[in-house]
Design a binder for these strands. Structure first.
Lengths: 190, 190, 190, 190
DNA sequence: CATGAATGAGTATTCATTCAT
DNA sequence: GATGAATGAATACTCATTCAT
């Protein structure tokens, strides 16, 4: 289904690629997009050249990081949506997205890009996620578990915003739980 | 309270300073912190040298911008808190902060800094705001208008997060209103 | 007559600009376009930043160098054409162009650009030169001093080529003189 | 005459080598020396490793390309010199060299290297060519077909320069023919 | 032998900040 | 005080060359 047939990639090359992605995810998340490519490469234990061989552009690296994130989220959403009843499914999905999206928000906000001028690779993952969310939202609304006047745009905005909220409470899980209560309460039909 | 006696500043110098602050606010808000100092200076109609005379560092400029914002917010909060009944006061303040904090979030998030390692100048404004918010929150809780299990940290986090949410809905005022309903609903004791 | 009104430029700035042009002319001519910008700046006694302030691009620097060269040539051509009889004018112009065009030919060949996709700034100078050459050629042909079957394209090609020839004989002025004889002889109607 | 005994080279290795030479000739000629080795390898259908096995250096590849060119020219010269009368031989050789030397001149100019600091491999071919040219020149001069005051250096310079001239007239064969007339006329004793 | 992944020095360009005019 | 020219550290990206597979 995916376009270009990707050749298997030598074992060590794959390891390098993975390490680069891990490092990039880490630094982009915690320190923002300003981190020098060279540092990312060094931290991953490779030369800059290697980084640029795998990701021809810093932007491409960022994109790859995001795609991986989105794919993880997508898989999670699909799992939840498949097994849980509408009500639970909706709130479970909301939690999942928020928890997976925490981190330096300059980066997180990429989710925003949904629907905007995202690069091709991202578009697919984004679209899939949006579809999932739209479905669970509709399901929950049909089941009377969520206010009927909210559309997907509000949902996505709320996901992003709640992620930002959580970021502020990074050190206090109990407080985060209270925030979930607040938001979930607010989402239910009054 | 501040150390050095601040000399009155010549009329044109004051005008320049103000123009710089206006321009900086505008560009930081809409285009983020990456905008070159030179461009800010040019847009304000002065040379870079002048910019650096008024604000010895780009960071200092940012700080000044934020202080002004915070002062505005503070004034607003004080006004509301003084005149409205607890319930109304709380939600009014919430609205005010969120609406004043919208804009490029990389920047807005400076509000976050509240309580962290902010620079001296900010600390004062921040503290005042935090005090105000703490008070209206307590008042509203005493009046039974807000869940009693929320503390100032959660409130602040929620303010930041709701700001982020609103940013996503920049073009749709009606949707933003619905978000306020959701959050306010969630904040009330169930 | 020239487009943008160029402000006078501070004395030292003008000096730097001139030095940069001189250095660039020198190195481009003797060592080709591969010379690092940083080296050019250092040789001119300024920082890279200064170089890029005056010439926003390496290409822009090259262009400026060429424009200056072409302007010099143009002035020379005009002088000769105005005072000498057709025969002498033509051969004098030929000499002038060849002598001014010597140097690393990768660079010289810019003259070639005449008529191609040159940048705006060059186009003007190039066009003026081409016009001059076309005129002296026609004059000389009318006067029976040059074969009538040659057009401006052949003349220009021959100028470039003769420049290349001379480059090979950099150390031997007498040999160069003989080459002029050969070419001039060949240009006369048999 | 050459030191190391050259092993016959496996059939496919030989094919690769040849393909690399062909591709390199093509790209160096049409696009200059800046073309990345990797692209050359890819175009030839081999990996970079293979390229560097055959030619330990990019420069070595360039050298090999030139040697082949020079060998071709040499063979041509020998053929002409052996069969034609002095007059014809000289002008035929001139034509041959010029026509074979056309192409991106940054590259062509390698011919220049004749007599300079060329690498060993080139020196041999260059020397042979120079010898041939010296001979046909002397022959033609003895036969009164060429000005007696020209030596091999002028001849070589003229060959290079005429090549450059021709490059400018790449699209116009008739013009090129006129250039030959001009140069040949000039070469004859007045 | 062939492959292509890895390397890292090298290069153009940007931008906060300083300082002579 | 104001100006804008000068500075140079920093950064993304390229490419010849090496070496593990």
């Amino acid at each position: 289904m995916s376009g270009a047939q990707e050749r298997p990639l030598r074992a060590d090359a794959a390891r390098n690629r993975a390490r680069l992605l891990d490092v990039a995810t880490e630094v982009f998340t915690t320190r923002g997009l300003g981190v020098p490519t060279e540092e990312i490469a060094r931290t991953a234990g490779v030369g800059v050249g290697t980084l640029f061989r795998h990701f021809p552009t810093k932007e491409a690296l960022l994109e790859a990081v995001m795609v991986r994130r989105l794919e993880t989220i997508k898989a999670g959403l699909v799992g939840i949506a498949a097994t849980a009843p509408p009500d639970e499914a909706f709130f479970g999905c909301f939690r999942l997205v928020v928890e997976q999206s925490m981190g330096k928000n300059e980066f997180t906000r990429a989710l925003t890009a949904v629907g905007v001028d995202v690069h091709e690779a991202l578009r697919e993952s984004s679209a899939a996620i949006q579809t999932q969310l739209t479905e669970v939202l509709a399901g929950a609304q049909r089941a009377g578990a969520v206010r009927p006047d909210l559309g997907p745009p509000e949902l996505i905005a709320l996901l992003v915003g709640t992620g930002a909220t959580m970021e502020q409470l990074a050190g206090d899980p109990a407080a985060r739980e209270r925030i979930f209560e607040v938001v979930f309460d607010g989402l239910r039909p009054r």
